[in-house]
Design a protein around this nucleic acid. Structure first.
Lengths: 90, 90
DNA sequence: TTGACAGGCAAGTCTCTGCTTGCCTATAAA
DNA sequence: TTTATAGGCAAGCAGAGACTTGCCTGTCAA
């Protein structure tokens, strides 16, 4: 493994988190937890999601912004371009 | 995991195999083994590469064609489009 | 027919990683 | 100041997966 981008994409929960941030960007950890439980039926704990977000951030797919006791998470799909460039689809 | 596409992309050796097939399409198992050892310094065994190819085939990234005792492997990047469609990069 | 070559199958090992558990820090409200 | 809320850290467990090992099948040439 070891490539942060593909490692981040390897987990289904992390991919759903990206879906969630695509739909509504700039969510806090608790907000993501709540919405994942609601819409996707995921019973992941706060700690689990937090660790997933760390992996996504390491891959550059998610950036964070602190504001008081809140930490907002933003998606950045730019790293995904490297995939299309590496193996062109025509 | 469980999504064949992302599972296939998760392993660095499999990504190098895709690189190798991008450069020279339609190789046999032994050919791939040899070239990976040469160019990429990968000391993976035949069995290991064979299992990797099976995973790539399951993901639709590689198709195979039998010819006598030879089996040729072809890359198909079409499944990768689903990534760009799922999380658009602008 | 025999031997070499290309590939397949299956069980076992070992590492990685996702998740839990428990406790801690920091900010904001009562 | 006390309490609740948002989040972080670290150790431990358990399952998934990459790789090895050993043996088997099928094709082709001598």
């Amino acid at each position: 493994m070891s490539d942060p981008l593909f490692k981040a994409l390897a987990d289904p929960t992390r991919r759903v988190i990206l879906d969630e941030l695509t739909e509504k960007d700039g969510q806090t950890l608790f907000e993501i937890c709540t919405r994942l439980a609601m819409k996707h039926g995921l019973g992941s704990s706060r700690q689990a999601i937090s660790q997933h977000l760390a992996v996504l951030e390491e891959a550059g797919l998610v950036t964070t912004r602190r504001e008081g006791r809140y930490k907002f998470h933003h998606i950045d799909t730019a790293p995904l371009r490297s995939i299309a460039e590496r193996w062109p689809t025509e």
